[in-house]
C-alpha cells in the first residue's frame, strides 16, 4: 500500500484512533502497516500523540513524525484521524467530521466513553464504513449511519431501555432512511 510516495494513491488514511482522557485506547484501527507494524509502535505513537494534543487543547491539528493528525475532543474522548503528510488536510478533516458526526448520531449526541463502549459493535462498523484499508469510503454521516445503525438496534431498545427513549426522533429517522435504502 502506497501511503507516502505516490501522490495519486487513493490510500490516504493511515489510521483512526479514539482515546480516552487518560490516553488509554478505546478503539483503534491502523491501515498503514509500514509505519505501524506492531502494537508497540502504535502505543508509542499514541502516547506521544496524546501528550501533544492534550497540551494544546483547543487546536485540532498537529504534524507528528511526518503524520498529519487531526483530532477532536468531547467530554472524555479524543477522536483522531491520521493521514500521510502529503494528504490534503481538508480531506482528512472531512473524514474526522464523518467519524465524529456518525458516532454522535448513533449515540444520540451522548458522546462519552461509557456510551461509546456500550455501542462498540456499531462503532466498529462505522469505522469500517468510513474507510476501507486506508481508502476513504464515505464521509457523509447520514449515509454512514444508515449503513450501520440497524433494525436489530430497535429490538434491543425494547428489552434494555425505557420506552421513552425509543420514541426519539433519531431512531425514527434511521428507520425511514433504511426503508428508503431498501426501496431503491
Amino acid at each position: 500500500m502506497d501511503f507516502d510516495s505516490d501522490p495519486t494513491s487513493l490510500y490516504s488514511v493511515k489510521g483512526i484512533v479514539i482515546l480516552d482522557q487518560d490516553g488509554n485506547r478505546v478503539v483503534n484501527k491502523y491501515y498503514d502497516k509500514q509505519t505501524f507494524p506492531t502494537q508497540k509502535e502504535q502505543r508509542a505513537f499514541e502516547t506521544s500523540l496524546f501528550k501533544k494534543s492534550q497540551r494544546n487543547s483547543g487546536c485540532e491539528i498537529i504534524l507528528l513524525d511526518g503524520i498529519t493528525c487531526l483530532y477532536r475532543f468531547n467530554v472524555d474522548l479524543y477522536f483522531y484521524v491520521l493521514g500521510a503528510a502529503r494528504e490534503n488536510e481538508l480531506v482528512l478533516e472531512s473524514v474526522l467530521n464523518g467519524l465524529y458526526d456518525s458516532v454522535s448520531t448513533v449515540l444520540r449526541k451522548n458522546v462519552e466513553k461509557k456510551t461509546l463502549i456500550d455501542a462498540m459493535d456499531t462503532t466498529i462498523l462505522i469505522i469500517d464504513e468510513l474507510c476501507d484499508d486506508g481508502i476513504i469510503m464515505e464521509t457523509d454521516p447520514q449515509t454512514i449511519v444508515s449503513r450501520c445503525a440497524l433494525r436489530g438496534e430497535d429490538v434491543s431498545f425494547v428489552s434494555d431501555q425505557s420506552l421513552g427513549q425509543i420514541g426519539s426522533n433519531i431512531v425514527g429517522a434511521m428507520k425511514d432512511q433504511l426503508k428508503w435504502s431498501l426501496l431503491k
Binding site: 485506547r25 484501527k29 462498540m120 466498529i124 434491543s156
Partner: peptide, 18 residues
C-alpha cells in the same frame, strides 16, 4: 443474539488491537 453479538464484538476488538 445479544450474547453472540457481544462475543463477536470482543473478537473483532481483539483483531483491531493487532
Amino acid at each position: 443474539i445479544p450474547k453472540c453479538r457481544g462475543v463477536l464484538t470482543k473478537l473483532l476488538y481483539l483483531r483491531l488491537q493487532e
